[in-house]
């Protein structure tokens, strides 16, 4: 396991996520982007029997990679060697009954309580500055998996105190029982938020975002400069390991040879 010295920010984030994934847990993973590549990387190197499912109800596939960006669901390649081909309501019912330990999502914006916006930026609902696709399958993932893990980039415009719109729920207003009062399953909610530079959790009491770990190439102030609000900071911060040469090889050669996802972000040289 040789640690790499040159990689993109996105590759680093995907590597950290892949190493967090567990063999004996079940995942509901959003269609494309870093969460999907991370689950494919974990499967390729560490967890051949990874139990990750997608919104179309494909249970634990071993996809024939690479997957082109629009073909992350339903397609023969995306659903290859699953253990079951079900459908959207079946996978939703599995989440509803508590079968999914972790939901993995990307987001446009996140607030201190882990609420997610993927609907629009700027303006108001009826006159959006820029409209995006909508809650999609993220709402059900963030509502019903036991733990939600988010992946995004470390940018001030993404870590906002107050969002334009909540597409999918975090801890809502952060008050005790807020999710339950909104009809969401008890004991579920945000767990980790990962960027190329930092990993966050949430305070047990206040539900406020808390910085837990840093990438090797940044310090606390670098991360705080890229947030619209100040998170809590854990008394001892961990350092996230950079990717290995082997992980980069799998990502670049097998999972994303065109660099659609992994080329995003700046290059890091250690």
């Amino acid at each position: 396991m040789t640690r790499a010295s040159d990689f993109t920010e996105t590759e680093a984030m995907i590597s950290v996520m892949a190493n967090m994934m567990e063999a004996d847990r079940s995942y509901w993973v959003v269609g494309g982007g870093p969460p999907r590549i991370a689950s494919l990387l974990a499967q390729a190197l560490y967890l051949p029997n990874l139990t990750a499912s997608t919104e179309d109800g494909v249970i634990a596939p071993q996809p024939l990679v690479p997957l082109s960006p629009l073909m992350q669901f339903v397609s023969a390649k995306a659903s290859y060697r699953g253990v079951a081909w079900t459908n959207m309501n079946t996978v939703c019912s599995l989440a509803s009954t508590g079968f999914f330990d972790y939901g993995m999502l990307a987001t446009l914006q996140v607030d201190p309580y882990g609420n997610i916006n993927s609907s629009f930026l700027g303006g108001d609902y009826y006159h959006p500055g820029r409209r995006y696709g909508g809650a999609g399958g993220a709402n059900e993932i963030a509502s019903m998996c036991w733990h939600t893990i988010l992946m995004t980039t470390q940018e001030k415009r993404k870590f906002v105190k107050k969002m334009d719109f909540i597409s999918s729920p975090g801890f809502l207003d952060g008050l005790p029982g807020a999710r339950e009062r909104a009809g969401l399953p008890a004991g579920s909610g945000p767990y980790r938020l990962l960027t190329p530079e930092a990993m966050f959790g949430y305070d047990e009491e206040t539900r406020y975002m808390k910085l837990l770990a840093l990438a090797e190439w940044v310090e606390v102030k670098d991360v705080l400069e890229k947030m619209d609000f100040e998170p809590l900071i854990a008394p001892e911060l961990d350092r996230m390991a950079p990717p290995t040469e082997e992980e980069l090889d799998v990502m670049r050669v097998r999972l994303d040879p065109l660099g659609v996802t992994i080329s995003d972000g700046k290059w890091i040289h250690l």
Binding site: E140, S168, G183, L184
Partner: peptide, 9 residues
């Protein structure tokens, strides 16, 4: 359903 609640959606 056990989702959608609490959000702008």
């Amino acid at each position: 359903v056990r989702f959608l609640g609490g959000t702008g959606a």
